[in-house]
Amino acid sequence: TTEYTFTDDEEARRAIEELKKRGLTFRYEKHGTTWRVRVD
């Protein structure tokens, strides 16, 4: 499991789109302004 942290909404959304394109399994949660994206 790899975890990424983003504080920029645009950056987080781009990363999420990219992961979807690659067909990877991931989860994300947003805490205030911080996004945590975990890739299995």
Rank of each mutant, 00 (worst) to 15 (best):
T1N: 07
T1K: 08
T1W: 15
T2L: 13
T2Q: 10
T2H: 11
T2N: 06
T2R: 13
T2D: 05
T2I: 14
E3D: 06
E3Q: 06
E3P: 02
E3I: 14
Y4E: 02
Y4K: 02
Y4V: 04
T5C: 13
T5E: 08
T5M: 10
T5D: 04
T5S: 06
F6W: 03
F6Y: 10
F6C: 08
T7V: 07
T7G: 05
D8M: 04
D8F: 04
D8W: 03
D8R: 05
D8T: 13
D9S: 08
D9K: 08
D9T: 05
D9M: 08
D9E: 14
D9N: 07
D9Y: 13
E10A: 11
E10K: 10
E10L: 10
E11H: 08
E11L: 08
E11M: 11
E11N: 06
E11K: 07
E11C: 12
E11G: 06
A12M: 13
A12W: 06
A12H: 02
A12F: 15
A12G: 04
R13L: 13
R13I: 11
R14T: 07
R14W: 07
R14G: 05
R14Q: 09
R14D: 06
R14E: 07
A15P: 00
A15I: 11
A15C: 15
A15H: 07
A15W: 15
I16K: 01
I16R: 01
I16A: 02
I16T: 02
I16V: 04
I16D: 00
I16C: 06
E17Q: 11
E17F: 10
E17Y: 11
E17A: 13
E18V: 10
E18T: 09
E18N: 09
E18D: 11
E18A: 10
E18H: 09
E18M: 12
E18F: 12
L19H: 01
L19V: 02
L19R: 01
L19S: 00
K20A: 08
K20N: 06
K20P: 00
K20H: 07
K20V: 11
K20I: 14
K20M: 12
K21T: 08
K21L: 09
K21A: 12
R22V: 05
R22A: 11
R22W: 08
R22C: 10
R22D: 04
R22S: 09
R22L: 13
G23S: 03
G23E: 03
G23H: 05
G23C: 05
G23K: 05
G23W: 02
L24I: 12
L24G: 03
L24N: 04
T25Q: 10
T25K: 13
T25W: 13
T25I: 12
F26I: 11
F26K: 00
F26Y: 07
R27E: 10
R27Y: 14
R27I: 13
R27M: 11
R27Q: 13
R27V: 14
R27L: 07
Y28T: 08
Y28F: 11
Y28Q: 03
Y28S: 05
Y28N: 01
E29C: 14
E29S: 12
E29I: 12
E29A: 08
E29Q: 08
E29V: 11
K30F: 05
K30H: 06
K30S: 03
K30P: 01
H31Y: 11
H31Q: 12
H31G: 03
H31M: 12
H31I: 15
G32R: 02
G32E: 05
T33A: 09
T33K: 10
T34S: 06
T34A: 06
T34W: 08
W35C: 08
R36H: 14
R36A: 05
R36L: 15
V37S: 00
V37G: 00
V37H: 01
V37L: 08
V37R: 01
V37W: 02
R38H: 13
R38Y: 15
R38F: 15
R38W: 15
R38P: 00
R38K: 11
R38N: 07
V39D: 01
V39P: 02
V39N: 00
V39Q: 02
V39A: 03
D40P: 09
D40N: 11
D40F: 15
D40L: 15
D40V: 14
D40A: 11
